[in-house]
Design a protein around this nucleic acid. Structure first.
Lengths: 331, 331
DNA sequence: CTGAAAGCGCTTACAG
DNA sequence: CTGAAAGCGCTTACAG
């Protein structure tokens, strides 16, 4: 079976390789009737360009790399699903990496195999910064998901953590909660920092003194929520617990049930993220919904636009979050 | 800044491009002292091969495509995490696709961008078969996760659904359950078929007549578990519900709680998969644990071995499952 | 508007 | 054991 290359197409339609290339990439000026003939030949032969050759000779590889802390948490899987949808629509492929050894990342850039990067940092390392600088120097487009851990002039897409937490504070005021426990994510998490910041702003706006909030450190894991709750209850009591993500809220709820506290009668619990299980817990979890799928979709869509010569992303886009009221708050 | 190509390395160490290539790919015979000098130059220059060029000229692209029904269910995310671990270890990249339009898949093959495929089918379409044939014809290595929906001579890695369900049947016998409801996955799911098959075998072995099991169709979604339970309870009663996956078990549990049935006092519930939430439910869910992470890791490891000239996978590997006993069964 | 030719950065027979 | 050369399948100035 003969391999269908651009030369086969060229021969079939009677034009040169260069012209076929122009038609396929819609680049340069081609006479409409010529384009038509070329397209017909492409169609009939079922020609598919070899992307390796295209990339090697200066074109796009139609591949976007997405670098994540993990691929298991729903936060990221929804992001991937959205990214995948956008990529598929435009005929792009996604390379997904979680264990970002320095070596592997440099290979990705130097190997010229990707046109753009979608990045999500967990904390910040000096290598992350070096990596960003390398991308900049090479003029490889990238978008950061979440607040960039470095300076502010990186193109990024964020969710409105502050706004979401403010809404929750307002809801707390409505319930009249007095004694509040807030369980944070890991220290370096900017999401967590923004959530508590927005929450306190919201409380102030409602006339509640944020100084009354007890803050305990967690790490976003279910186990840390469980432990934080146990430690806290050894010496204190609260009307409500605001966990900085749903997984920790799950841990908290589990601990309360283990020791026989009723939710929400004895203690209310709320989370952040709106993971799928929130709706199925008993009681169902009041939380803040964030559009991770939309973010993935938007980010890849923008990246493709940039790759294909469109305008670059304005430096940051913020997507709004929304309160998802269920039963664990007492509603 | 000069681009570091193989020619730069060649010049630096005083050997030819061909020799440098041989050293880097550990192919052909090279004098040890030469190899040493070449490696030193590679090191000092921080040279990384351009993978596009390598692939174009007949080498590996060091990329494996993984095709999945979705990237959201834990079943698949664990698989990806395992695959990613193996890929990272060997310096390979993973392209992940969920929306498998015909066009996109053919591009992937014809575009020569991947060395191998890891496939997971949901049901079976005629295109899937055509796709497999195309891979075979092109001699592109692939491994199927789960029982192949076609003939049996495809390299595949399976979990022991039958064995896991048998173990569960044995556990049911220990509890002395009489009236049993089994909720299946979608009709075309071979996993679901094997699970109920193994379950019935197990019951027979324990002297329980499998004909007593009421079977209701679900589709693996939480919602379908919820609905199946509602419909069932309109006319019948059971001691225990075996949902063919944990998500449906979650739906079942939710429905029982909604109508005030106590689990496991009024009715026991068990699942299959051991998703993360199983441990955190109230009561915690008894289920069958399957090694999806290990499967991803094993599959990619094998694929890389094949790519790099090793022996092909024996036609099928079956990994065992294990009973995870918690509280929802009454234990 | 179209084509001939160079070049992208590798691998791999083929010679020696 | 090593090198010169062809070739992988495209894109892109450059000419016309």
């Amino acid at each position: 079976m003969q391999k269908i290359t651009i030369d086969v197409v060229a021969e079939k339609c009677g034009f040169s390789r260069a012209t076929v290339s122009r038609v396929i990439n819609r680049e340069g000026i081609v006479k409409p009737s010529t384009a038509e003939k070329v397209e017909k030949a492409v169609q009939e032969l079922g020609y598919t360009p070899n992307l390796m050759a295209r990339a090697l000779s200066g074109g796009n590889s139609r591949t976007i790399a997405i670098l994540l802390p993990d691929v298991v948490r729903e936060y990221y899987t929804a992001l991937i699903a959205g990214a995948d949808a956008a990529a598929e629509e435009k005929g792009y492929n996604l390379i997904i990496k979680t264990r970002n050894t320095k070596r592997a990342l440099i290979d990705l850039i130097e190997g010229r195999r990707v046109d753009a990067f979608l990045l999500r940092f967990a904390g910040s390392s000096s290598f992350d910064l070096e990596f960003l600088n390398r991308l900049k120097k090479r003029k490889i487009p990238y978008i950061i998901i979440g607040k960039p851990p470095f300076s502010d002039d990186h193109p990024s897409i964020l969710i409105d953590n502050i706004g979401g937490a403010r809404l929750m504070a307002k809801h707390y005021a409505m319930h009249g909660f007095q004694r509040i426990l807030f369980i944070t994510g890991p220290e370096e998490s900017l999401d967590s920092q923004d959530r508590i910041y927005g929450f306190k702003i919201g409380l102030s706006e409602q006339g509640i003194d944020p100084a009354n909030v007890v803050v305990v450190r967690g790490d976003f894991s279910r186990q840390s929520g469980y432990e934080a709750m146990r430690t806290f209850l050894e010496t204190e009591r609260a009307d409500v617990v605001f966990a900085a993500n749903d997984h920790m809220a799950l841990g908290v709820m589990r601990y309360c049930q283990d020791i026989g506290m009723r939710v929400p009668e004895d203690i209310a619990i709320t989370g952040f993220d709106d993971n799928f299980f929130a709706e199925y817990l008993q009681p169902s979890l009041t939380t803040v919904q964030q559009p991770m799928h939309a973010i993935g979709d938007l980010a890849v869509g923008n990246l493709i636009q940039i790759i294909e010569g469109g305008r670059a992303l304005e430096s940051r886009i913020i997507l709004s979050t929304k309160l998802q009221i269920r039963h664990s708050c007492g509603c």
